[in-house]
């Protein structure tokens, strides 16, 4: 457990979070590892956790009949995978697959939601962090949609 606590506190995502909250979060955390090609999340399934990627690379993708797998975004060490656990109906919208051996810490969403409900300050800290991620992804998505390297911007 001490190990997990250290990993959590050193992860950029939790930078600046008070140690007591880290301790609290450890209760929802577990170490996970995925082989290359292995699914981490599946579209439509309940979103019960999110992942702090410690090592490796993950591909977020969706599958379209006739076109195959459309890759949307890669996530790497130091980054976060998954925020559907935060928003009802708590289901994954995309697939995520490990591209290489990937080690991560999974945080149980249900557990975390409960802790956040109990302590709004923790909730606010977590929300702030996810907000930044969501905003960044929204901007990046906009850029991607604009097809800026195409014929017409």
């Amino acid at each position: 457990m001490e190990n997990l606590e250290r990993v959590l506190s050193e992860h950029p995502f939790f930078a600046g979070l008070q140690p007591e909250y880290i301790k609290l979060l450890v209760g929802c955390a577990s170490n996970v590892a995925f082989k290359p090609g292995e699914f981490i999340l599946r579209e439509g399934e309940p979103a019960e956790s999110f992942y702090l990627i410690r090592h490796g690379k993950v591909m977020i993708e969706t599958f379209v009949a006739g076109k195959g797998s459309i890759m949307i975004r890669t996530r790497e060490a130091g980054e976060i995978l998954g925020w559907s656990w935060l928003v009802p109906p708590y289901k994954w919208h995309f697939d995520a697959r490990a591209l290489e051996v990937t080690r991560a810490i999974a945080l149980d969403g249900k557990c975390l939601r409960g802790k956040c409900d109990e302590d709004y300050r923790l909730g606010y800290e977590i929300m702030k962090r996810f907000n930044a991620i969501i905003a960044e992804r929204l901007e990046a998505t906009r850029l991607q949609l604009m097809d800026i390297y195409g014929d017409h911007v």
Binding site: S69, M71, I72, R73, T74, E76, G78, A140, L143
Partner: peptide, 22 residues
């Protein structure tokens, strides 16, 4: 990084700005 990919692409997907932090 590429904006979109299909098939066997093993590299990054996403906008170039996301490469800056890392």
């Amino acid at each position: 990084t590429v904006d979109r990919a299909t098939g066997n692409w093993k590299g990054n997907v996403g906008v170039v700005t996301q490469l800056i932090p890392r």
